[in-house]
């Protein structure tokens, strides 16, 4: 019992996730339904895939405000590159070519952020704030403010496809998302790179003294985040069969909100992939459930903002209580 209590006290996001699931199951018609849960996973996947990389970067003690813009750029590349002359004779395989171009673009932009953070020593917030403005400019210059549509319907078919698993037809994107959660979780908890991620964020000086190459390490995490953001751009554009220059606006805020809901510390050194997943899932469930209850979409903003601040207050209360407890034991 005590174990349960301390688990939920330390990781309140799980309690929150369960609470809202129960709430909407009781009060929102059609919420408690396999089909709907699949929808929620798809809705969560775009933000979720980015959040995986964002968690790594934030545990490093950095941040990335440019993910929304990078997502838009990669989506645009994904859609546009299918009709590039170099892929012309590939037929349907042009989609694969474009896919690689999009991921590459994401890694290049993420890598650029990481490289600047590494080499200039400028605060990551500022570096990526600049990138956020600049890359969005790049998207507009590239598209000339036009939306792009995929000519090959196979592209959107892939986005809508599902994989039969026993009696269920699970959407491909949902499966991709879950597999990525598992992979990045293993990366963070089981590999040397993952453990170093905590060291670099928790005590940079100690990491440097221990011979961890802090700069390249951060660079790699930005590269991973860029690649994952590119992937999110691909899945999002394939669901829509199109890319718009304004795609992904505000996504950085939602992603950071989800990761912080999951308990990752802005100062670095603390966080977990599974909890970030729970944070993003909470946001998706809130949006979905409120939609089911016919609540105007506007209220979601207010509720999310409120929850974000509430989590912060809760966290503060809990940690100060912990201190008091340890003083009194």
């Amino acid at each position: 019992m005590d174990k349960f209590k301390s688990f939920f006290l330390e990781q309140p996001i799980w309690a929150f996730l369960i609470a809202i699931t129960v709430f909407f199951s009781l009060f929102a018609p059609n919420f408690f339904d396999i089909q709907n849960f699949e929808n929620i996973l798809i809705q969560a996947s775009t933000l979720g895939i980015i959040a995986l990389g964002m968690t790594l970067v934030m545990i490093n003690g950095n941040i990335d405000l440019s993910v929304g813009a990078i997502l838009a750029f990669c989506a645009v590349v994904m859609v546009d590159a299918q009709s590039w002359p170099i892929f012309a004779q590939l037929g349907d395989w042009a989609i694969l070519g474009a896919f690689f171009m999009a991921i590459l673009a994401g890694m290049a932009l993420g890598g650029l952020n990481g490289f600047l953070v590494w080499k200039t020593g400028v605060n990551a917030f500022i570096v990526t704030l600049g990138a956020m403005i600049g890359i969005r400019g790049l998207v507009f210059v590239y598209t000339q403010e036009q939306s792009l549509f995929a000519m090959n319907f196979l592209f959107s078919d892939i986005g809508m496809s599902s994989v039969p698993l026993g009696p269920l037809a699970v959407p491909t994107i949902a499966i991709l998302f879950l597999v990525l959660v598992a992979l990045v979780h293993l990366l963070l908890t089981r590999t040397v790179h993952g453990r170093n991620t905590f060291a670099v964020g928790g005590n940079p000086e100690a990491a440097v003294n221990a011979g961890i190459r802090v700069g390249p390490h951060m660079f790699v995490n930005y590269l991973i985040l860029g690649g994952l953001t590119g992937l999110a751009g691909v899945t999002l554009s394939s669901q829509m069969g199109a890319a718009t220059p304004n795609l992904g606006r505000d996504y950085e805020l939602w992603v950071i909100t989800g990761v912080v809901l999951g308990g990752t510390k802005l100062a670095g050194g603390y966080g977990s992939i599974l909890r970030s997943f729970a944070g993003i899932l909470s946001i998706a469930i809130l949006r979905n459930g409120m939609n089911m209850m016919q609540v105007q979409a506007f209220y979601v903003y207010v509720i999310l903002g409120g929850i974000l601040i509430a989590v912060l207050i809760l966290d503060k209360q809990l940690s100060s209580r912990k201190v008091r407890l340890s003083e009194q034991v």
Binding site: L253, I256, T257, Q296, A297, F298, Y299, V300, Y301, V302, I303, L304, G305, G306, I307, L308, I309, L312
Partner: peptide, 13 residues
Amino acid sequence: LGMLSAIQGFTLI
């Protein structure tokens, strides 16, 4: 950041 979201919501409401 939370206030950014909340105030945006209030404006829309």
